[in-house]
Amino acid sequence: MIGLNHYLIVAGLLFAIGLIGVIRRRNLLMLFFATEIMLNAANVAFAAISHYYNDLSGQMFAFFIIAIAASEVAIGLGLLILIYKKQGTLDLDDLASMKG
């Protein structure tokens, strides 16, 4: 029988994968993909807890997370296009303009 812990372990694994992506990536677009993975992991955990505690609040939170992710992508891609027009690259190390 699949219990709550199974879902939470899968969600934790997915979140760890997203976090590995955030640490490892140098390209801004790939960083966006990694954050999407982390948001989805949180959604899976919310839906599973909502099912096993028989409470709809978790699903509501997942809905709002999806709405926030959608607006984040809209604004973020606009900013990425601006950066690409200005600098010609999406590489984080090449974008470092303040030399300390």
Binding site: A67, A70, G78, L79, I81
Partner: peptide, 12 residues
Amino acid sequence: LLIAMIGGIILA
């Protein structure tokens, strides 16, 4: 979402 849409259009 409306603000994000307007912002995306203006930025891109």
